[in-house]
Design a protein around this nucleic acid. Structure first.
Length: 109
DNA sequence: TTACTGACCTTTT
DNA sequence: AAAAAGGCCAGTA
């Protein structure tokens, strides 16, 4: 349960500023395992509501939303747009401008 | 303990 | 270009 990795992931996601987005792989890398991108998604599922994490700021690689349209694709896209994130014709985010560039993460513990 | 799942990522067809 | 397969890790049952 909630290993250091998981705890760090939640911290990272909570530290994502509005108007910026981060990819699972990037978060996983910041957490210490760039191969645990899948786990990041699962952590989101598990702790998004519980920890009030901005899950909508977490996207897949290339700026594409991972959620199916039936599940929450529209919701996430709307939230991102409200925060100022622009989408391309292909429903993709401009990683050039919106990908979160973490300078340093302050570990709560 | 093992087995299954998961909002992924990368490479290959 | 799009689609499929493989590989990786952590959490839950």
């Amino acid at each position: 349960m909630a290993s250091e990795f998981t705890r760090r992931v939640r911290n990272i996601i909570a530290a994502i500023p509005e108007g910026s987005v981060a990819t699972y792989g990037q978060i996983a890398a910041l957490a210490g395992n760039n191969r645990a991108a899948r786990q990041v998604a699962w952590i989101l599922h598990s702790s998004s509501t519980a920890h009030k994490l901005p899950w909508h700021r977490v996207i897949g690689s290339g700026g594409k939303i991972s959620l199916p349209r039936q599940k929450g694709y529209e919701e996430q896209r709307s939230l991102l747009v409200l925060e100022g994130v622009c989408f391309n014709s292909r429903d993709r985010i401009d990683m050039n401008r919106f990908m979160w560039n973490p300078e340093h993460i302050d570990d709560v513990e």
